[in-house]
Design a protein around this nucleic acid. Structure first.
Lengths: 256, 256
DNA sequence: GTGTGTGAAGCGATTCACAGCA
DNA sequence: TGCTGTGAATCGCTTCACACAC
């Protein structure tokens, strides 16, 4: 039940695997870069390298969207940009609210990556009355009291929680009650939400702990690895190291 | 995996599945909370609920660590905290450097979750000379020129990149050259690293895009769901603006 | 009775390898 | 000839269901 299971097997209707969805933004970014350099077409091999995945996976991913390539040639960059954008729902405008304007909230408000992809910061909300009216990233911070009104007035369906852990669930409840159905949670807490609401979490400390695990293991292997693989040498073989990234390894959605 | 190999086969030695490793921090957090409330033991069912996973998965995960539970009773909280901490390598101190002290870097520096889990911010590094010496979260920012010296002097093996995308690869190269073997990347770029270096990425914009995909799908289902399930609290919510083409229509950009 | 630990079944994602088309 | 698109094989994770220990 890792995925946003609404009551229907409606997931089947369009049937794009979750793992593929998680990679589409990656392809989109690589394609956008190519587009800006006016590259007209790209092969699965090239694009895969740019996105940091292998080409078989990329071709399989694209096959779920349709047959958008040309055999013997590759993919049309502009066309693919459009198709992926449409598939991800980025051809429409998504108003987003950010709740909790501390360091992190401010960083998010200033993050250029939002605006450039169909996301618009509709409002910044904080519980501290002293923050009210203060502009962050050019947007005046509003008090938590306004939360429900803001959500409704702007038709916001995506909320970002950047509050301390203690406040997160309460904020979440209010967001959901006001109509938000997708939440990006930066607070280190497990949020409980009703069915039909998607939660994705980003947890800085968890990422570091996963790195620590691997780091620890490297240290332990050091001696064994030295003799094991002849190819080694202090040389640094440069590979477009694949698989940088979570997605999928942490449950994106949780039940009530 | 571009080269056909992401981890060395040594992963077999201890053989904890990657998916399990990714959940251990989650369990650890839940257990820590229980520990602070002086709860002595916990069942897989309870702990699973607190961590937001199902109990079968949790038991399977723990079985990879060993048989640390007691049948008919549950798990000893303190003991489990220790075992998981050890497994993750958190019983030792991990000095970390953060490169790029903008909004996000500052947020990370201030993030309490680091210090509390065996991570110590050894240094903050920024390319802007004007930042040098300015304290952030009580730690003076140092200039990029010092990067190599800092890494070596402090025996840093984990680096956090919070620079703009354009600078990330270069910073990464220098970190790796200086001895860093684990990188947490917040810049929206695919980093290329030599074999043996782990990279995890956190990409805010990608998370939002994944949410947008699901959100879009919900909107499409709305009509079907409306009659099906009467439970929904607030009425159907809609973003204003665009009506995305009911798939099938091929707009503006097309290949020649 | 209660709740863990785990083989076995189920399922989704990745990879392989090649047919098919430009 | 070159590269896409995809069935088939494979791999790894999740879930089931129950034996077993307390």
């Amino acid at each position: 039940m890792a995925t946003g299971r609404t009551h229907r097997p409606a997931t089947r209707s369009r049937g794009i695997p979750e793992a593929t969805v998680a990679r589409l933004p990656l392809y989109l970014r690589a394609l956008t870069a190519l587009s800006e350099r006016s590259v007209p077409t790209v092969s699965s091999e090239e694009l895969a390298a740019a996105a940091g995945v292998n080409s078989a996976k990329l071709r399989k991913d694209f096959s779920y969207l349709g047959s958008y390539g040309t055999r013997g040639v590759g993919y049309d960059v502009e066309y693919l940009v459009y198709q992926i954008s449409r598939e991800l729902g980025l051809t429409q405008d998504w108003p987003v609210v950010i709740v909790g304007i501390g360091n992190l909230g401010a960083a998010l408000a200033n993050y250029g990556g939002f605006a450039s992809r169909g996301f618009r910061v509709a409002a910044l909300i904080d519980a501290d009355p002293a923050m009210a009216g203060k502009p962050v990233a050019g947007i005046p911070v509003q008090h938590t009291d306004e939360l429900e009104r803001i959500i409704e007035d702007n038709g916001v369906s995506i909320g970002v929680i950047a509050t301390p852990a203690g406040a997160a669930q309460q904020v979440c409840d209010r967001l959901v009650a006001a109509g938000v159905t997708s939440i990006l949670n930066f607070a280190p807490t497990v949020l409980t939400v009703p069915d039909g609401v998607d939660v994705r979490k980003v947890d800085l400390s968890i990422e570091l702990q996963i790195l620590a695990f691997h780091e620890q293991r490297k240290a332990g292997e050091e001696s064994a690895a030295a003799a094991a693989d002849g190819a080694a040498a202090p040389a640094a073989r440069r590979t477009p190291s694949t698989d940088q990234g979570p997605d999928g390894d942490v449950p994106a959605v949780m039940p009530a």
